[in-house]
Design a protein around this nucleic acid. Structure first.
Lengths: 337, 337
DNA sequence: GTGAAAGCGCTAACAT
DNA sequence: ATGTTAGCGCTTTCAC
């Protein structure tokens, strides 16, 4: 492995100074077109590749953006990362993904390693149960621009890009009611999470807006898994007063509900309405296909990064909040024929 | 944004030299336990964070691994990335993902920016149509260790981690035949790709091993999409001599086939066998559920990274090839009741 | 066991 | 428009 070419090599070859080479390479003004041309050609000839570490060290800028999130193995998160990646790239930034596994302890340890020497800004989707201010003090207090996405911490004066859970849930519930399902239950996740609370809120306001009483026994909190969705549904079907529709906090649980219904020989769509949230690819493929609220992961990624780039450009910036609205995708699971 | 603490700050505070601090921090021998303790405590007090750029510059090592692949928005690739990430992290490396969008031109441009100043090693899953040696000369000739995964270039003397497509396809086809489907067709992708060729090879040898003649009209090349799978299936069903089973090159196309069959009121499983390849989450959720060969993306990621780390540790290493075998997952689409 | 000093490759004043 | 020079923060000989 031969030592790769540096600006010094180019300078010596051309018998000019390194600073001129540096300027020429970066297309700064104050360098003659002729010199630039020579520099470029020698650079190409020597297969020169800039040393970004050296540049980062000298400039105090890394041109790297950190992404901290639970994991990437679902469609939603991988879409967000892709959206971020595209915008970052477009602005000349690389990205480094840090996966917390949704484990607060791990998230904390990751956040504690992050610093300006390794990134210029960071995008965070915090672990489910780690959304307390103190977790992020380290990073929010460091002067590094931070934008939260999807799951934001309740921190004042930090930017965030969120999905409109309340209106999404409201829309899903209203849709079910309009289709004649008046006894809408809600199966959801642990109650202490912001987006869980918001979807519940939207669910309730959807009922209220349609003069339908809210029944506590029709709201079930459990895990975010397909299996939990199935179990929740069985529980609902065993109630004396059964619901005739389910709005699930996410598609996984909604799919679990569909499976439970099939097992009980209840036809989703005609007899029983089901709506989910996210628009996972599986929602379109399962039979009956699943009505859901689409979460625009890709756009959330793009907007988050756009906002972060904006923050990184100014020394002083003020927090912004962006709310993206998903659309209702009507499929078989809520459609009476 | 106050300038963050450096080893100099620690050294001054303790009135010792920076080299001692550097050694203490890195847990090198030749530093007294007492000094180390003091250094550590002051470091914690000042909230010292190492500047990795400076370290990388001084050491000529970046402790960063590059991952070049088409995209991450499917379950398989995101699993691979997760596997890589875990192993990399475990060995103290960060990872940087570069998405080519499966566009050779973009892949080439990404590869041309990669150099030792930015990463210590790189894992590549090349674009579909870019698998020619010249594309990778730049990087394979640079002295940076490279490991190809999943889609390898036909380059001698480079390490790669692959899935055993041939035996997987063979197993799927054999399974269909054992279940009584003797007229097995194959719907696949463009013919010039290595893994496409290999699955075709496995398909053919599965037929041959069971004394079933290979029919050219039962092998259809088209795009890797669900829609193409549906169209291919319609074409097969319109043949004079219809097949009674389909082995698809991937789950997307297999799911397309299931949809075509449903539309024609043909019951997959009982009347018509279908098997896919990958084990996408959708395969378990679709109804009837899809028999498939599981591609162990997570393990492929882990093995690839493990191999790369091994290469990065030695100055001189020799290429290795690892082949992972997926298992057959039998579901409803191939199961006569 | 610790310190002094050179240097990694690049940038950015400051000169000219 | 170009050159000189002093770092950026860390590692690493080489002394002692």
């Amino acid at each position: 492995m031969h030592h790769s070419a540096t600006i010094r090599d180019i300078a010596q070859r051309l018998e000019i100074s390194v600073s001129t080479v540096s300027r020429a390479l970066r297309d700064t003004h104050d360098v003659s077109p002729f010199t630039r041309k020579k520099v470029m050609s020698v650079a190409a000839e020597l297969n020169y590749k800039p040393n970004y570490n050296a540049a980062a060290l000298a400039k105090g800028k890394t041109y790297n953006i950190g992404i901290v999130l639970p994991f990437i193995t679902n469609h939603y998160f991988s879409s967000v990362v892709t959206g971020i990646y595209q915008v970052a790239n477009h602005h000349g930034y690389t990205t480094t993904v840090y996966m917390t596994g949704d484990i607060p302890r791990k998230e904390l340890s990751i956040l504690s390693t992050l610093s300006g020497s390794v990134l210029d800004g960071v995008l965070i989707c915090s672990s489910l149960s780690a959304q307390h201010e103190c977790y992020f003090k380290n990073i929010t207090g460091s002067g590094i621009p931070v934008v939260f996405f999807d799951r934001a911490a309740d921190i004042s004066n930090t930017s965030r890009v969120l999905h409109d859970d309340i209106s999404g849930a409201y829309e899903a519930v209203t849709h079910l009611i309009k289709n004649g399902y008046t006894k809408v239950a809600h199966i959801t996740g642990p109650g202490d999470l912001m987006f869980t609370r918001r979807r519940l809120e939207g669910y309730i306001s959807g009922l209220v807006a349609n003069n339908i009483p809210v029944r506590k026994e029709w709201i079930i909190h459990s895990a975010f898994t397909q299996e939990a969705g199935t179990e929740d549904t069985f529980r609902l079907l065993n109630l004396e007063e059964k619901p005739d529709a389910i709005f699930a906090v996410n598609d996984r649980k909604a799919i679990g509900a569909l499976i439970a219904l099939k097992e009980k020989n209840i036809l989703p769509g005609n007899e029983f309405g089901v709506a989910g949230f996210t628009n996972d690819p599986a929602a379109a493929i399962i039979s009956p296909s699943l009505t859901t609220i689409e979460e625009p992961g890709f756009d959330i990624g793009r907007e988050s990064c756009e906002l972060l780039v904006k923050h990184m450009k100014k020394k002083k910036y003020s927090a912004e909040e962006k709310i993206l609205t998903g659309r209702l995708i009507i499929r078989e699971s809520s459609n009476r024929m």
